[in-house]
Amino acid sequence: MLTGNILTPDGWRYGQLQVEDGRISCLDARPCNPAENEAPYLLPGFIDLHVHGGGGADTMEGGTAIETIARTHLRFGTTSLLATTMTAPPSDIEAVLRGLGERIEDRPAGAARVLGVHLEGPYINAGKLGAQPNFACTATLAELDHYLSLAPIKVVTLAPEIASHREIIQALSRRGIRVQIGHTLGSYEDGVAALEHGAHGFTHLFNAMTGLHHREPGMVGAALAHAQYAELIPDLLHVHPGAIRTALRAIPCLYCVTDSTAAAGMPDGEYKLGRQPVTKCLGGVRLADGTLAGSTLTMDQALRNLVRIGLPLEDAAQRLSRYPAEYLGLTDRGRLSPGSWADVVCFDRMLNLQSVHVEGEAHDFTHA
């Protein structure tokens, strides 16, 4: 049983949340204004749909790396996530997907739930690699069918301007896979056409895509004008707060991701992002040439950053939980209501993380 200011789908409620068999069994709570009491905040557990690593481990390492990643991010309020791959040779991607497919079904104690895979590349534009290694290629349904047989791929990032990719978008969308536009040199018109063919969102909005100009709106313009969903990295390095606020006004269900690397939750030093060596320093992760290469962001810090730039706590929280859950079509995560999984994060009044409950399993971080 947990007591505090509970953020429900119907707004704030003060009272008790009861858990049974890993799910919320009852809410005994009344409407409230949290400003009128000193009780902690109980928020839906965070859902991160773009995670490359954490705790020194990288998804592309395979083996037990995903367990290290899931345990690391649990410490920062993430209760479920998508293991995210890098652009790489087919043999590397196949090996990683095969390993993930064997490990995802069971959640180890003390770890976030891995919901599936975000395949970020290799179907991207070689002219907008960002920190991706140059193994970009054109998608084929045969190859994607093979990858889908190995692991539960939930999201695929691709560049829609590449020949045949519109048909790929249409085919994946029909199968319920969320196709995101990213690492692209495509035009505004390419973005609109991709959305019309079934693309659902945009990968790390503003980053690794054509920008907004008043005579060439670019892919950013397509997102701002037409998107219902898009992911964004709110570490305040990848995107200026003013641009974040612009996106918030334009995209109804803008949600936030970490795009975290092995350096998340670790001290400054040298790490790997796929095949690329990266350096963590001054709060960021960069390639040798200075290019941003993922982040060190954690979801609890993402919450604080959103509040810092002016979002109400309840709005910030739903962009880390409810919207990513709805994007994946999940009805029993990302919300605190009877029948949902008991994925709960508890914060004190200064927005310090106190405890995390994943599928009812409790972890206390008050002395961490």
Rank of each mutant, 00 (worst) to 15 (best):
V220A: 11
V220L: 12
V220T: 13
V220R: 02
V220Y: 05
G221M: 05
G221C: 12
G221H: 02
G221I: 11
G221D: 06
A222Q: 08
A222E: 03
A223W: 05
A223V: 10
A223N: 07
A223Q: 08
L224I: 11
L224T: 09
L224V: 07
A225N: 07
A225R: 07
A225K: 06
H226A: 14
H226I: 05
H226M: 04
A227D: 05
A227R: 10
A227P: 06
Q228W: 00
Q228M: 06
Q228V: 04
Q228G: 00
Q228N: 04
Y229Q: 04
Y229L: 08
Y229A: 05
A230N: 12
A230M: 12
A230H: 08
A230T: 11
E231A: 13
E231P: 02
E231H: 03
E231Y: 00
E231W: 00
L232A: 05
L232C: 06
L232W: 03
L232I: 15
L232D: 02
L232P: 02
L232E: 06
L232T: 06
L232S: 07
I233H: 02
I233W: 06
I233F: 10
I233G: 06
I233A: 07
I233N: 02
P234Y: 04
D235M: 07
D235R: 13
D235T: 07
D235A: 13
D235Q: 07
D235C: 11
L236H: 02
L236A: 07
L236R: 04
L236W: 01
L237T: 09
L237W: 08
L237V: 10
L237A: 10
L237N: 12
L237P: 00
H238N: 12
H238K: 09
H238Y: 11
H238V: 12
H238L: 11
H238G: 13
H238S: 12
H238P: 10
V239D: 03
V239R: 03
V239C: 08
V239F: 03
V239N: 09
V239E: 03
H240Y: 04
H240T: 05
H240Q: 12
P241L: 13
P241E: 14
P241V: 10
P241T: 10
P241N: 12
P241C: 14
G242F: 12
G242A: 15
G242L: 15
G242Q: 15
G242K: 12
G242V: 14
G242R: 15
A243W: 07
A243E: 10
A243T: 15
A243M: 15
A243F: 10
I244K: 00
I244E: 03
I244M: 15
I244C: 01
R245D: 02
R245Y: 09
R245C: 06
T246K: 04
T246N: 09
T246M: 15
T246Y: 02
T246V: 15
T246W: 13
T246H: 01
T246E: 04
T246A: 15
A247K: 01
A247M: 03
A247F: 05
L248F: 13
R249A: 11
R249W: 00
R249Q: 09
R249D: 07
R249F: 05
